[in-house]
């Protein structure tokens, strides 16, 4: 069986602004394979095409060369089985937290055609999900009444509400303070463990990558491709304490040296 998310020899060029020739080569010869249920982290120097990887894997962009497969199918349109969360929570300020969570259900099938009839059921599901990330009873608040960390939790919930098989996270914790960030690592860790979904996390934070991932991919400077693939064999469930062990630190240092080399 092939991998759940498989990019094979992918190159992607962004057209230069204003048309004409000479676009930017964002990724070149990028190959990556993520197994079903695996937690993959992608790290690399800034501007290495990590976000391009996200867009390619979700069918928001299509490569000029190479193939992208998700769940065994060639990606020719947005994949619809993915949930996404970004550095900015991008919640809708005119909707309550609960209504923000229901947004994906108003769009994705089969929920879209059922949301009128089964609204009560969906609301219950959303409230359960909120409770699972420590936001029980916050559904009626507006996003701007929540703290940054709570907004990001809501954003994660929105990415998960339609029970996607693939969760794509683009530096979701980069804007948070260190303590909130570590709290949310545990939230993500538990969600992944409970739901057995495939996660691809793009991050700058090596500790985050090592703590959460089964495998870490190190990308080269632009145009990006995978330089190193590092399995993380720390036993699960992992506790935050593991981040202070020598074994953990060694892996972080090893990845760091790869990135330093990639930047040169």
């Amino acid at each position: 069986m092939s991998a759940f998310v498989a990019l094979d020899g992918v190159s992607h060029v962004y057209a230069a602004r204003g048309g004409s020739s000479g676009g930017t080569l964002a990724v070149d010869g990028l190959s990556i394979a993520v197994e079903n249920g695996e937690f993959a982290a992608v790290v690399g120097p800034s501007g290495c095409g990590k976000s391009t990887l996200m867009k390619l894997a979700t069918g928001l962009q299509f490569p000029v060369k190479g193939t992208v497969q998700v769940a065994g199918e060639h990606v020719t349109q947005p994949v619809k089985i993915a949930g996404m969360a970004f550095q900015a929570p991008t919640l809708l300020p005119w909707r309550t937290t609960l209504d923000n969570l229901l947004l994906p259900l108003e769009i994705v099938e089969p929920h879209r055609s059922q949301i009128r009839r089964r609204r009560g059921e969906y609301v219950e599901r959303a409230e359960k999900l909120l409770a699972s990330v420590g936001l029980g009873g916050m559904g009626s608040k507006f996003p701007w009444e929540l703290s940054g960390g709570m907004q990001q939790r809501t954003s994660l919930c929105r990415a998960l509400i339609h029970e996607p098989q693939l969760l794509m996270l683009d530096e979701p914790f980069a804007a948070l303070d260190a303590f909130t960030r570590e709290e949310l690592w545990c939230v993500i860790r538990d969600l992944h463990a409970a739901r057995k979904i495939t996660v691809i996390l793009v991050t700058h934070d090596l500790r985050e990558a090592v703590f959460l991932a089964d495998r870490v991919f190190v990308m080269s400077a632009r145009p990006g491709r995978v330089l190193v693939e590092r399995p993380i064999d720390l036993p699960r469930p992992r506790d935050l304490d593991v981040t202070f062990t020598p074994g953990f630190q060694d892996i972080v240092h090893e990845l760091r040296s790869h990135i330093v080399r990639a930047r040169q």
Partner: peptide, 13 residues
């Protein structure tokens, strides 16, 4: 916000 657009497009909006 382009990110929000991406979130929705990835759902098939």
């Amino acid at each position: 916000e382009p990110e929000l657009e991406d979130v929705l497009k990835a759902l098939g909006a």
